[in-house]
Amino acid sequence: MANLTIRNLSKSYGAVRALDNVSLTVKEGKLAAVLGPSGSGKSTLVRAIAGFVRCDSGEILLDNRNITHEKPELRNTAMVFQNYALWPHMTIYQNIAYGLKLRKKSPEEIREKVQWALELVDLQGLEDRYPKQTSGGQQQRVALARALVVDPEILLLDEPLSNLDAKIRYRLRFEIKKLQKRLNITTIYITHDQEEALSIADQVILLNNGQIQQEDDPESIYSSPNNPFVAEFLGASNVITADILEDDQGLYVLLGGARLPVPRGKKPHDKVSIIMRADEVSQDREALGDSSFYTLKGRISEQMYLGAKRRYEVATGEGHTLLVDLEKRLPTDADIELYIHRDKLYIY
């Protein structure tokens, strides 16, 4: 178990910058989720840590050991691959034992350790099966056991759950989290699923175009996104582009009749992005207490039943369309007044 430090890591494939000056620290025993769309560089990052990608510049440290130019087999990282990469010609037992054999452990120790790992992932009794004879969820656990059995300094999970169906994915997510806490192992968890990242991580690193967009704990990154990309990627349903207006009181934008402030540095006739989550508006003025809020006015143009709530499309006077989630049943074409906390509207 170790602290991971990455300094100014860059990697280009031709004209594409897969990693662009990435720096980050993951403290011992923490789980860092690296989140981003496909092509954001998250896979390159984890493969660079494992040693399969040679970086153009920057360095990678495990505690004080500089592993930037170390061979993959000498790094003592353990990786769980997206397709599990179990060796089809070896049994589950042989798969898990292989890393220990390479470390020249005694036969008794190997047997003990493999047994420990099998119990850890709840796979006792499947030792003699071949990977093909097990289910996807079981293969995933074998891959996890194979990685954990060698006591790696850092565990690398490259989209470990993306090949499983939703139900198993959900359950395994928490199992991985529990295991990680129990073993107190520094972990990098690659995913493109924002919910997975938020629910499992101590620290979320959001990547796009090879650059870190924001790095924070899950609640902070969700409640105060740095920029529209972060907000949108973390599930904001409304991203509205509005024109900046000017009158004798200064610059402003209009949304549902509400006068919103403009971030500094903008000029008249520039555009701003307004970001708002569908479930953060309310019809109940009392519930907001005496905190400051905006009042947005509009007319319901469309609605969709979602079970616990309804999603309404609200057309504002300025010609924008807002998506809002409300529990109450309202008729289409009704005029509606919505309230939202001032700090729940992000304007960039």
Binding site: M79, L102, A147
Partner: peptide
């Protein structure tokens, strides 16, 4: 890669 990752040359 999985084998190299676990320590094989």
């Amino acid at each position: 890669e999985a084998a190299r990752n676990l320590g094989a040359s």
